[in-house]
């Protein structure tokens, strides 16, 4: 590489220069020596809000039916409550498991508890980086960083980053993507 990394754009936690295979390894569980960073816990709150909005109609509908039509329909109410409770439980367990780490060569995103995935996107493969935030996410001061490579299935997504972290990450990724860019 001829271009040095822009020092102002480099995070203090990231080692520069090529990585020897003996540097901290990516692991499915635990930190393995990498600086895994969690997403904002407010992401769970935001998802609870969405869940609440989605659940309120079926719940009211089932309640109305149970009260005015047949007592048997209390079963439907119970069903809705169980489903909502289960989804809430899954959200509560999943959000803390979303974490990401930057190494010298790649951005790694880990997700999921029961079904685990690790996505590794090399900086040199980045085509562009999106930072999005909807009204709800903005209310919580969060944004989603989406990575796009030349393949639509390979992009990673980090939801629920605090806005300033997301902006900094986008700038770092842009700088590294530029300096390590390779053709298709």
């Amino acid at each position: 590489m001829t271009d040095p990394l822009d020092p102002s754009a480099t995070a203090p936690t990231v080692a520069t220069g090529p990585v020897a295979p003996s540097t901290p390894d990516v692991t499915l569980f635990g930190d393995g020596g990498l600086d895994w960073r969690p997403v904002s816990p407010k992401l769970a709150t935001a998802r609870f809000v969405v869940l609440g909005c989605v659940a309120v109609l079926p719940l009211l509908g089932a309640l109305a039916l149970a009260i005015f039509v047949s007592a048997w329909l209390w079963l439907a109410v119970a069903f809705v409550v169980v489903v909502v409770g289960w989804v809430a439980w899954v959200i509560g367990r999943q959000v803390p498991m979303i974490s990401w780490a930057e190494t010298a060569e790649e951005l790694v995103i880990r997700k999921g508890r029961l079904f685990r995935t690790v996505v590794s996107v090399p900086y040199g493969r980045l085509q562009f980086v999106d930072v999005q935030s909807g009204p709800l996410a903005r209310k919580f001061g969060m944004a989603t960083v989406e990575l796009h490579t030349a393949s639509p299935e390979s992009g990673g997504q980090i939801p629920g980053l605090p806005t300033e972290v997301a902006e900094q990450l986008r700038e770092r990724l842009a700088a590294r993507g530029e300096s390590q860019r390779a053709g298709l």
């Binding site: 029961l114 995935t117 996505v119 590794s120 390979s154 992009g155």
Partner: peptide
């Protein structure tokens, strides 16, 4: 030419220690 890498592991795979 590798765009990115993904490792995934479901619950059954975890029991067998594979990914």
């Amino acid at each position: 030419r590798i765009q990115s890498l993904t490792i995934s592991q479901g619950p059954w795979e975890r029991r067998r220690g594979v990914a």
